[in-house]
Nucleic acid binder design. Structure first.
Lengths: 202, 202
DNA sequence: TATCTAATTAGATATGCATCTAATGAGGTA
DNA sequence: TACCTCATTAGATGCATATCTAATTAGATA
């Protein structure tokens, strides 16, 4: 379901709004366009801190940015908030936040990327879909057992030629840990919650 | 002043919504009433964790609770969300989130020293912050009413274990007066101006 | 009374994130 | 080129909080 995307977005929006400093900044920006310095003075925070908050607000579309020389002018993006309001007004929309939806979505991704023989057709480029595929793959290893790199490779090669990338991604997504050439599964609690958002964009 | 409350409420609402597990729970509760066990199974969390989340959702009015024997049935409180949606739809409402100098500072102090249940985590050491906290506390007593020491203690104990210190500070900051074991509030004009002038403790 | 079940509270751990200082980048001007 | 200003990035620190296990409360039942 595209529902899943929606709910991830929604979560990020709420996270962006769940901080007093950022609400203050939004308040100021709702009045008029402002520069970083100006904002820092008004909310009594250092510029890097304000910059950090603005980056987050911008990432979720709550504010817009206009450059003028080396001054950056930020402004409220009013549609973002009214859109949010709209999304909240239906009870069904809220019901759509229930977790079961995720499994559905994952099944769909797997249908797309895995062929009838169980071979991975390609490694998804999108972070979320890659997560879904990796989750499926990692569950084919026993929890609590330790695998030498050679064996990890062997198992992965049964699914896709690029075992090196897959191994690396296991680590990156915290689905596996590695120590001196030996791999083991991490508990799903460590990664199952992250439906695949980047922590920061790097 | 009412603004201040509003924005504090709003912040708590967003904080409650800014967590994937709680969004999942809300989704399930939007479908129908559910017990803690049931929810724990569906979101794959332990019961105490779910209990913790539900307490927060309830505190901000997003869910309601009904007891039946020792089963607790939680349900979505749909008005809470539509109300939120309404509050977001006006640009002026957002502009109202802008900080208001002193008030905002006091709000920030309170956020730091008062936990979500309204308990005072500790008595600030800095004079100014202690002033802010005491001002908040003393406003919970009616003006013009007289309180025997026992009742002052009882009320303070709801906020912090060291009621004796708090009582003494009320006197020191001229927020209350005492005569033969009976206490009463002094008018704010007597102390509201001193955002923490030297008065001498002890 | 003792016991069973459902839920909450207490206490511990670990991760996320707000904030700061210092360093770097990027545009403008003399 | 050198310098100035505004902003962002890097890295460190400390607090808030999501989650778990263990202990406790509360209702129901035998």
């Amino acid at each position: 379901m595209a529902d899943d995307n929606d709910s991830a977005d929604l979560l990020l929006l709420f996270k962006a709004l769940a901080d007093r400093s950022r609400l203050n900044l939004l308040g100021l920006l709702a009045q008029r366009e402002r520069s970083v310095q100006e904002l820092a003075a008004e909310v009594v925070l250092k510029e890097p801190t304000v910059s950090h908050h603005l980056a987050m607000l911008k990432r979720v579309g709550l504010v817009s940015l206009r450059h003028d020389a080396n001054t950056h002018w930020y402004a409220l993006q009013p549609d973002a908030i009214t859109d949010l309001a709209k999304r909240l007004s239906s009870r069904d929309a809220i019901a759509g936040l229930a977790p079961e939806a995720a499994d559905d979505w994952q099944a769909k991704v797997l249908e797309t990327f895995v062929d009838a023989d169980g071979k991975l057709k390609s490694i998804p480029a999108s972070r979320k879909k890659r997560w879904a595929v990796l989750a499926w793959l990692v569950r084919q290893f026993d929890e609590g057992r330790r695998y030498p790199e050679k064996e990890v490779n062997a198992r992965l090669l049964a699914r896709h030629w690029d075992s090196a990338t897959l191994r690396r991604e296991f680590i990156g997504y915290r689905m596996m840990a590695r120590e001196s050439g030996v791999y083991w599964r991490l508990p799903e609690s460590a990664w199952a919650a992250e439906t695949g958002e980047p922590f920061q964009d790097a």
